[in-house]
Design a protein around this nucleic acid. Structure first.
Length: 1034
RNA sequence: GGGCGAUUAGCUCAGUCGGUCAGAGCGCUUCUCUGAUAAGGAAGAGGUCGGUGGUUCGAGUCCACCAUCGCCCA
């Protein structure tokens, strides 16, 4: 093969690979080759293309890529259909900003048709950049056939799903309390609410409410209930006070005061201060029905119904904070609302949609409610109803686009009764494998446990229209398709969006003469994306689509960021459970957040985002991918920095590449006998082990460990196999080439899902047959070459021995270039056999003439003996300290001798004799004077440091070679150039060179060697002696 | 306020079943090797494994509480 460029520029190389993929149509070919194979299904969670893709999109896209690639190579047919999320408030807001408007009135004045047309265009504003980035990072997905949630067929599938849900009685209009932005005039989704929490200071007020009707209760006239709130503006519509029926309450008097107040017993001190005097105890149940005077008189009790301004029992009340008595304003809190519904209290809302009080709240009418807080508190104080007022700092939700504090409003909305299928949701979740595992019963399972009905409708414009038609008599019909709509109305719509669909009416489907018209709302975008398993194929309305869907449901794999637990992961599960009573996915990988180098969340507003293109241009897509896959477990999140990615390039990709460069530098020689060595067998065994581990980890969706296993193998290959085998490559041993080639080709395949560019270039350079590595089958263990565990162990021992020997040299400050006579090794049994098997390797690495084994350490050091806790702990339990003491008192050399001979050693514990055998004790070596010795556990290497003249000369000869090599390099010669060499200078050095002339010429590729020391040569100094070197290309 | 997760060397992270191993890489210092490598090898400095209790013969690992950070929710 031709020589590979060692300085290859990876980003440029990747561009060339991309070009090759296009030319050879590799992605489609990889699918064609698996036609008819068992399917493995991946669902693409659709992004919205109305903003630039960021690094976090690269993260999710590369994880969405790796497993489909892996499964394809494993023999599955893995369709990868792209998708785009097209609807929703984020799109509307972007368009509002373009238009410079910010309210519903302005949108309607602009015209819904025009507005929605703008939205339709804006959705794909950055489609080109998305497509370009997707291709550039090697995410193989079919973007041509991508589903789009705005397409008519897609909308129809969604309608069909809603009709199914309605047919089961699970779609209803309900009054619930929703977070609402008074400025924007719409309810917000929980997602949007989560974007806007902010710490604010609100008044914290304790209000006393005098009781009126105490008959049958433990209270007396003149007592007052104490309630607490941080939203004084809701007090004007106080409807009731809630207590927990089982909680203990008291009548009590503050130390200083004489009034009798009612609070939860647990909160007496917090509310009334130390020294409060408890007069009487009772449970909340006893308070039920007690009437009280409302904090404000704007709205009379009668408006609320029979139980207005009385004490009601409620399970949600706690004694955690406040007073244990909860101010209840039906329209402004979910708990309040449910309580009101239960006790038949009317919803009285004196707040207008724009967040101001209406005329019922006399002096405050027309004011924004939160602005009235302070005045209302003063009013309470003036009328003696205020017990205490302080400031309270807490997180409060604000509109994420206009910063207005949100209000919680009871408003009519359409809901899906998911809470009725909660058990089925939980059962479906049980069938899912989550990564990381704790999501299953943690964040996600917990969320399902507390499932509430899905607030489906949005009072907005750009979305899938809610297909609910209703007549003035209140009959409701849900339309399941455009075909049905046309049948009923004789109107054929091309575009199902607003405003066109708003005008379509038809005769009531019930026994009724009225005309049905569509309700004005659109639906939550999360329903769109959650419907993708069938809607992406226009199923079930299209017959072909239905078949596609049935073949591809459920998915084996979905992957998104952690925040999708309450988003897409939930909407998928909910819809799938409602329609098919099963989970839509089998394996979920959750990805963590991307943080900047300081650990701050990346966001546009902070301006600390890292543009993906910068990374790609500097290091390449593979480097980016490799960083995400292997730097850490993906769900833990990333601290993102260019430097870390650069490190990965240097340590892994560069190392791999240079191994290829080395391979391409030499060529097998004709006529050289292949000699397969232990090193070859070792490399292949390590390769097999790596294939096994990578396969196993990828099957478990663990790219991190899998990738690190590949890196460990490449390191072994480069820094041990190649380093140890260099001479065989120079000499052209075909066995070495075959081994390295096999390793590199297999690494290319293992790496294909991780770093598809470099893997493919590696494969291409090695000329391994297919047009692309991505068309290969995944490597499998070769039954004729099983793993050789004994050899892997032997090599590990040999490398450890070398490490100890080099350490000994380092300590003695004897250069490796200086040969030594002997290394003395303490090793026995399996270890000794291992070192003997690989003695050549050990001798060369340590540069010693011979190895001598001693089975016992007596010659080199003395033993110490320690108890093996792992073996003895379970046996002796509490007796371990005594055992340890007894073992410590043993004579180590005696123990060593006994164990060597297979005898046991006795110790006395608690007056009983116990026999300890070889596994119960750990022997370690202590060094003895006189040798340079390194030890670890029972294993040691000592070096004989004495030099004779022969060794010295040989050492000098190696110094000469070293100097000549430096001269070669300085002369700019290529590694394979043959030279004419002349040496001159110090006689001792020349003597050494003469004595080892074959070695010197062989190492330096000198075809001639003269000792006349020409004057134009380079000068070197070796141990203070001068050497003149002349190097010319021969 | 609740739920979940995290906390190990200056930085980025491993650490399996509770056992005698407190680790790797990067960075730093000093050597060294080089016929592929911006590479490799050796030595050194750098740690109360966030804290406090508990369980246990034995805790980085299990439990409780606390602190800090993050995410989700209220």
């Amino acid at each position: 093969m031709p020589a590979v460029d060692a300085q290859a520029d990876f980003p440029a190389l990747e561009q060339a690979v991309l070009e090759r993929w296009r030319e050879r149509d590799v992605f489609r070919e990889s699918l064609r080759r698996r036609e008819g194979a068992p399917g493995w299904v991946f669902y693409e969670g659709p992004p919205t293309a109305n903003g630039r893709p960021g690094s976090h999109h690269v993260l999710s896209r590369v994880f969405k890529d790796i497993f489909p690639r892996f499964k394809t190579m494993r023999g599955f047919y893995v369709e990868r259909k792209g998708g785009w999320d097209c609807h929703g408030l984020p799109v509307e807001i972007a368009v509002e900003q373009q238009l410079g408007i910010s309210s519903k009135e302005q949108i309607e004045a602009y015209g819904i048709a025009e507005f929605n047309q703008r939205c339709r265009e804006s959705v794909f504003a950055f489609l080109e950049e998305w497509d370009a980035l997707t291709e550039r990072i090697g995410f193989w997905i079919d973007l041509d056939a991508a589903y789009r949630t705005l397409d008519t067929e897609y909308v129809e599938s969604v309608w069909w799903a809603l009709a199914q849900i309605h047919a089961r009685g699970l779609l209803y209009e309900g009054h619930k309390v929703v977070p609402y932005c008074p400025r924007c005039g719409t309810a917000l989704s929980s997602h949007e609410v989560a974007l806007g929490y902010r710490d604010v200071i609100d008044p914290s007020v304790y209000v006393r409410l005098g009781v009126r009707d105490v008959a049958g209760s433990p209270l007396r006239d003149g007592d007052a209930l104490v309630v607490w709130t941080t939203t004084p503006w809701t007090l004007v519509s106080n409807a009731a006070v809630a207590v927990h029926p089982d909680l203990s309450y008291v009548r009590a008097r503050a130390e200083a005061g004489d009034e009798v107040l009612v609070v939860a017993e647990a909160l007496v001190e917090r509310v009334l201060g130390e020294g409060a005097q408890v007069l009487e105890r009772f449970t909340g149940r006893d308070l039920e029905g007690v009437a009280y005077d409302a904090p404000f008189a704007f709205i009379p009790a009668s408006e609320y119904g029979a139980r207005g301004h009385t004490v009601l029992p409620a399970d949600f009340v706690t004694a955690q904070d406040g007073t244990g008595l909860v101010h209840t304003a039906i329209a402004f809190g979910e708990d309040d609302f449910q309580l009101g519904r239960r006790f038949d209290l009317a919803v009285v809302n004196p707040v207008r949609p724009d967040g101001t009080y209406d005329e019922r709240v006399g002096p405050h009418a027309g004011r924004f409610v939160k602005d009235a807080d302070r005045d209302l508190v003063e009013d309470l104080r003036a009328r003696g109803k205020l017990l205490r007022a302080t400031d309270h700092e807490h997180a409060y939700p604000h509109c994420w686009r206009c910063s207005t504090p949100l209000l919680y409003y009871a408003k009519p909305s359409w809901y899906i009764a998911t809470s009725q299928v909660r058990d089925r949701l939980l059962a479906a979740n049980e069938t899912v494998t989550w990564h990381p595992e704790h999501i299953k019963h943690g964040r996600f399972g917990d969320w399902l446990e507390h499932n509430v009905d899905w607030a489906l409708s949005r009072e907005r414009y750009w979305g899938t229209p809610l297909p609910v038609w209703r007549c003035p008599a209140g009959h409701v019909h849900v339309v399941a398709s455009l075909g049905e709509l046309e049948e009923r109305s004789s109107v054929a719509l091309d575009d199902p969006h607003r405003p066109y669909v708003d005008d379509v009416t038809f005769a009531c489907t019930e026994d009724c003469t009225e005309e049905m018209a569509r309700v004005p709302e659109v639906i939550d975008v999360w329903f769109d994306s959650g419907a993708m398993p069938f809607a992406q194929y226009a199923a079930p309305l299209s017959e072909a689509g239905r078949e596609h869907f049935e073949d591809r449901f459920p998915a084996q794999f979905v992957c998104e960021a952690l925040d999708q637990t309450r988003g897409w992961f939930y909407s998928l599960l909910a819809i799938s459970t409602l329609l098919y009573d099963r989970a839509p996915y089998e394996n979920v990988v959750c990805l963590g957040l991307i943080l900047d180098a300081e650990g701050q969340k990346m966001s546009k507003s902070r301006g600390n985002t890292v543009a993906p293109w910068d990374v790609i241009e500097r290091f390449g897509a593979d480097a980016f991918r490799w960083y995400f896959f292997t730097s850490k477990q993906p769900w833990d999140g990333y601290r993102f920095s260019m430097e870390t990615i650069g490190e990965g390039v240097r340590l892994f990709l560069r190392q791999l590449w240079n191994t290829l460069v080395f391979f391409s530098t030499y060529h097998p020689e004709e006529g050289v006998e292949p000699v397969e060595t232990d090193l070859d067998a070792w490399a292949r065994s390590r390769l097999a082990a790596t294939v096994e581990e990578v396969t196993e980890r990828l099957d478990a969706y663990d790219a991190t460990t899998a990738g690190r296993a590949i890196a460990a193998f490449v390191d072994d290959l480069s820094n041990w196999y190649v380093r140890r085998s260099r001479r065989r490559f120079w000499e052209g041993d075909p066995a070495a080439f075959a081994t390295l080639r096999e390793c590199l080709v297999t690494v290319a395949k293992l790496l294909a899902p991780f770093t598809p560019f470099i893997a493919d270039e590696l494969y291409e350079q090695l000329g391994a047959g297919e047009p692309s590595v991505h068309l290969c089958d995944w490597p499998q263990e070769d039954p004729s070459r099983p793993r050789d565990g004994e050899l892997e162990h032997a090599m590990a021992v040999a490398r450890e021995t070398v490490r100890l020997g080099l350490s000994a040299r380092g300590t003695a400050k004897v250069k490796v270039r200086q040969p030594l006579h002997e290394a003395v090794l303490v090793a026995a049994g399996r270890e000794r056999a291992a070192i003997e098997r690989l003695a050549g390797v050990v001798r060369e690495e340590l540069n010693v003439k011979q190895l001598r084994f001693v089975a016992q350490a007596d010659e080199l050091g003395s033993y110490t003996v320690k108890p093996n806790y792992r073996a003895l702990g379970p046996r002796f339990g509490k007796g371990m300290p005594q055992v340890a003491a007894a073992v410590g008192a043993l004579d180590p050399d005696g123990v060593a001798a006994a164990l060597r001979e297979g005898r046991t050693v006795g110790v006395m514990v608690d007056g009983h004799e116990h026999e300890l055998s070889v596994g119960d004790l750990l022997l370690a070596l202590a060094p003895l004077e006189g040798y340079q010795l390194e030890r670890e556990g029972s294993h040691a290497v000592a070096l004989e440091l004495a030099l004779d003249d022969d060794l010295r000369r040989e050492g000098l000869a190696r110094e000469v070679v070293h100097a000549v090599q430096a001269a070669r390099k300085a002369a700019g010669l290529a590694v394979e150039d043959r030279i004419a060499l002349t040496l001159g200078g110090d006689e001792g050095l020349l003597d050494a060179a003469r004595a080892h002339e074959a070695y010197v010429t062989g190492e330096t590729l000198a075809v001639e060697l003269a000792y006349d020391g020409r004057a134009d040569g380079q000068e070197a100094h070796i141990e203070g002696r001068e050497l003149r070197i002349g190097v010319t290309k021969a």
